[in-house]
Simulated assay, not measured.
Amino acid sequence: MKLDKMLSPLMPYFLALLRVVSGLLFLEHGTQKILHFPVSDFHPPIFSLLGVAGLLEIVGGVLIILGLFTRPAAFILSGQMAFAYFMMHAPKSFFPALNGGDAAVLFCFLFLFFVFSGPGAFALDNKKK
């Protein structure tokens, strides 16, 4: 019980850390598709399904990092990741470790968690109150 009392006040700060790190990782997927950074051979057309996904990843990643419109952005991004998993990964194999969809599953449930938890500390959403 003592450990619980020590750690509980830190929860909003670690929630913010989780939000910022996950937003940065998600943003990177979008910049790779749209801005070709980090450099890869993957360059989908901007008006394709993957191009739109890249735009959502950039805009949504920035919103998550800033903690701005966190709950609606996280809801949309969670849906995007569920769609991506079932559209792109699940047909390859039932197992996420084999179909390359483990990141999509993790992002989906991480963003779903943010829908219910909110942004934590250091978020622009907190400035509106």
Rank of each mutant, 00 (worst) to 15 (best):
V115P: 01
S78E: 03
M81C: 07
K92N: 14
E57S: 10
T31G: 05
F69D: 00
G60D: 05
L106F: 11
L112N: 11
F111Y: 14
F83H: 05
F75E: 04
H29S: 07
V59M: 09
G61Q: 00
G67T: 08
N126E: 14
V52G: 10
L68D: 00
G118S: 01
H36R: 15
F113P: 02
A123L: 03
G79S: 07
A103W: 02
L3P: 02
K127V: 14
F109R: 14
F69C: 07
L55F: 14
V52A: 15
V59N: 06
E28M: 15
I76K: 08
G23K: 02
D4Q: 13
H43G: 09
S93I: 03
K2S: 13
L124V: 09
V62G: 09
A73C: 11
T70D: 07
L50P: 03
N99G: 04
L25Y: 02
P119S: 01
F47T: 14
L106R: 04
I58A: 02
L7A: 11
M11F: 12
G54K: 00
L106I: 15
M88D: 08
I58M: 08
I64Y: 01
S117K: 09
P72L: 12
I34T: 11
F94N: 08
V105K: 09
D125V: 07
F116T: 09
F109I: 12
I58P: 09
D102G: 11
D125I: 08
P44E: 10
Q32L: 13
V62H: 05
P119F: 00
F86W: 15
A123P: 04
A104V: 00
G54V: 00
G67F: 03
A121D: 10
L7N: 06
P44A: 08
L66F: 11
V20C: 04
K5G: 08
A103K: 10
V20G: 09
I76R: 03
G23F: 00
A123Q: 01
E57F: 02
L112G: 13
P38Q: 10
F94E: 14
F95D: 13
F37V: 14
D125N: 04
P38W: 06
A53I: 10
C108Y: 03
G60P: 03
P12K: 02
S40F: 08
G118F: 02
D125E: 06
P96C: 04
M88P: 00
M1I: 03
L68R: 03
F95T: 10
A53L: 04
S8F: 10
G61K: 00
L56D: 01
F83Y: 09
L55V: 11
F37E: 12
M11R: 15
P119N: 02
D41S: 14
L68T: 06
V39W: 15
K92S: 11
A73W: 01
L56F: 12
A16D: 05
V59F: 09
Y13I: 13
S48N: 04
N99S: 01
R71Y: 07
G67Q: 09
G118K: 05
K5I: 00
F122D: 04
H89L: 04
I34V: 14
V21N: 01
G120M: 00
